[in-house]
Design a protein around this nucleic acid. Structure first.
Length: 196
DNA sequence: CATGGGATTGACT
DNA sequence: GTCAATCCCATGC
């Protein structure tokens, strides 16, 4: 991936990231589920404006935004759009590809479909920690590479949020067993919309 | 300074 | 299906 890839509308990036490979050290997995977040809608952390917490979101694209969720889990996002615009793609699930034994060790589980089937799970499996916040995705320890194929996509509402829950900004590979939550009644994705 | 609320997960009924 | 764990941060007094 190059810088221009992340500098586009965050919904487009979220859709295009499904099928790509997220890598950290010896571990890697194919992205099967993403969500887009943008400063113009209240579910996004950047909605509150520029603070110490959201500084990375408003910074230049192609950086990692890693934050602690519910006091327990680390969640990994890829910062998108131009510098000054707060937007990022949350990586919600992977299909394990490399370093699966290391993932099992970190997660304390054996079944491959349980290793990365959630945003907190995949961060733990890949060893992504809070100190990776701000890490450069171009030439840094964490990288996203093009995938070998473009999967068929499903779009729907985002998971686990109470605000702006109507936006269909969740994308996943159709038929993957490694998604974080099952799809109620899946419908094919056509196009994403970029917020005004 | 006190408080409320999460972009979740795993264990339990 | 329900629910607690756990802590950072934004907000309000």
């Amino acid at each position: 991936m190059n810088r221009a890839f992340y500098e586009r509308g965050v919904v487009d990036v979220a859709r295009d990231l499904v099928g790509c490979v997220l890598r950290h050290g010896e571990t890697a997995g194919t992205i099967v589920e993403t969500e887009a977040y943008h400063e113009t809608e209240p579910a996004c952390h950047a909605f509150v404006g520029l603070t110490e917490r959201t500084r990375i979101l408003f910074g230049p694209p192609a950086r990692a935004y890693v934050y602690r969720s519910y006091g327990i889990h680390a969640l990994f996002n890829a910062v998108c759009e131009d510098e000054g615009v707060g937007a990022a793609v949350l990586i919600r699930a992977l299909e394990p590809l490399e370093g699966i034994d290391l993932m099992r060790e970190r997660r304390g589980l054996t079944r491959p479909e349980d290793l990365c089937s959630g945003p907190g799970k995949l961060a733990q499996a890949l060893g992504i920690e809070l100190h990776h916040n701000g890490s450069d995705l171009l030439g840094g320890p964490i990288a996203i590479e093009p995938g070998s194929e473009s999967p068929e996509l499903i779009a729907g509402p985002r998971i686990g949020i109470t605000k702006a829950a109507e936006l269909p900004w969740r994308f996943s590979a159709a038929g993957s067993r490694s998604v974080s939550r099952p799809w109620p009644k899946a419908q094919p994705s056509t196009r994403g919309q970029t917020p005004a």
